[in-house]
Design a protein around this nucleic acid. Sequence first.
RNA 1: GGGCCCGUGGCCAAGUACGGAUCAAGGCGUCAGCCUGCGGAGCUGAAGACCGUGGGUUCAAAUCCCACCGGGCCCGCCA
Length: 632
Amino acid sequence: MTFKIVLDEARRILEKAVVELGVPRVQYNFSKPPSDQLGDLSSNVAFIIAKTSGGRPGEWAERIASKADLSSSIYFTGVTAHPGGYVNFHLNMKNFAEFTLKNVLSDGRYGLPQAEPKQRISVEHTSVNPAHPLHIGHLRNVVLGDSLVRLLRASGHQVYVLNYIDDTGLQVAVALLGILELGLSPEPMKGTKADHHVGEIYVEANRKVESDPALQEKRRRISQQLERNQEPTATAAKNIVDRVVRAQLETCWRIGAEYDLLNFESQILKTGLWDKVFERLKEKGVAKLAKDGKFDGCWIMEGGDENEEEKVLVRSDGTTVYAAKDIPYAAWKLGMLEDPFRYGVFAEHHGKKLWATSDSGNPNPPERFNVVQRTISVIGVEQSRPQKFVKAALLALSPRGSGYHHLAYGKVALSPKTAKQIESGISSEGPVSMKGRTGMYVTADDAMDALKIKAAAETKKRNPEASPEWVEDISESIAVGALRYELIKQDLNKPIVFDMDEALRLEGDTGPYLMYSYARARSVLRKSGSFDMQNMNTTPPSDLEPSEKNLILAISKTELELEEALKYLSPRVVANHAYSLAMSFNLFYEKCPIMTAPDVALRDWRLLLTDCFSIVLARIMDIIGVPHPESI
RNA sequence: GGGCCCGUGGCCAAGUACGGAUCAAGGCGUCAGCCUGCGGAGCUGAAGACCGUGGGUUCAAAUCCCACCGGGCCCGCCA
């Protein structure tokens, strides 16, 4: 927050100078000068004025700087003009540092954005088919969604986390086929998780189905029975799905994600939501019956743009296509329909109830899950086109449809090397895409286990005296931190090529770097004894070292960075800021002795700075879900 | 063929929304250094980039516009 105050002050000074010069007001912005010598903050206002009023930017900068009135300024010591045209502000670092530290100590949510207005928002993520374990591609979805939820909540929004379970789809039908028709055992071996076991059945069954028309017919029948909720298939499916979902949840919880509601596809079908929505789509003229052409007999929806092809919603045989099934669920999410579901407790985690739609539940929702202004669905980019139709259908039903947001992300593929480790026959030059159907994937559990083993070895090496329980605990945290960071630090639309060896890195731009920096700061603070940080002197005793200044600036920019992350729904921005903050601290640590500072006043002030850094870094790490133990 | 996205040193990548300044972050890898000093999962230094190509707009382009090239995804009465 503190940096914002500085921006406001700079703006006031500039506005006043501009008015005095008698030129019209313009839109301009601020940036960081390339070097500290030039200043701490620069504005392009002179460039803009030169454009509208003529003249050279350098001259305007000179005029503005000479008119700058710093008489009542608390945070600036000077305003200078650069011949190139920039107007540069020089911070009174002593005042600014004091102000920043004071704020960190007194404001329990320093650095967090203030959502205005506060909204009710639901976020759907994970939504993995209950027929196999999560692989690292799914994990990208989970970690993005969960980090987004944390960011929204930290900003003051009320957020519900939804996880959609497609328990009637073809994938469950195939797994069931493996058990019912091919005699594959539904019971996992000891030590095997149910999702991994069913995943193997799923692969095996798929292999057989592919070359056998009779099995394909059986698969279709099972699938149909699932959609129509026919016994005994429905109950058999329910058993399998329940076990797989619980096993998948273990993985999700392990990585730090939590949910409020599981919504089962079977429940959506049962409530007849589709029929209601379909009626309304017909009334509004969005769904049209094709009378001829290649979609003769189908209900279709027009494409958004002129040259986009229409989309089939209902086939000529009366069945509904996959994308269309998303519409009623999305309409429910935004409260366009009466809530038809019954709710029961599916599980409890960390003392919090996880609800699920179910037959036997209570018709009164425990929370108003579908009374929200916005709903965000974390879904891969490959679904962008169908998602566009969902949004268009919602907008046709109600203006509230504008609250529907598809957060798209690129997929995760395997490096050729890692793919080869799974299946030696693979000979690919480029990335290999993961497929649940063929078993070509690295599971989230395996990736985490491998990371944990590596982390445990490193942790033991550095802490030879530590208890096995502690090492176990810490290496688990490191595995989580490393994997989460790895999956969100890059651009959303870029595909990630996952390489196992690469992912095992614990140095450089990684989650453990953040954890190490935090632990290092905490270690110093522990050794310093019992200071009363709240009552220490926030005024720097002497001029600041460049690395101290740098760290103060990094701390002070936290709110601006998180606001940007919030605006663009981009956890990556949070991760990047955490990294640069940690880097600033490590630089400070290297250059400025803390405990052995030349005098007591300076030592105490640096301890305070260290404390403030650790407070803010921990807060940011919480948003991206990277754990921050006191030592690692 | 049409639509969306991406192209920055050997590799990965920030910066692109809001165009600006003498060095275009950072990481991996390579080379050379720093623990008898608060944690070496760290830090310092070196080498390495005509920001895919070509045009355009502008006083100013990695950033905006156009074309092209290369890569990914999508374009089913599959899910």
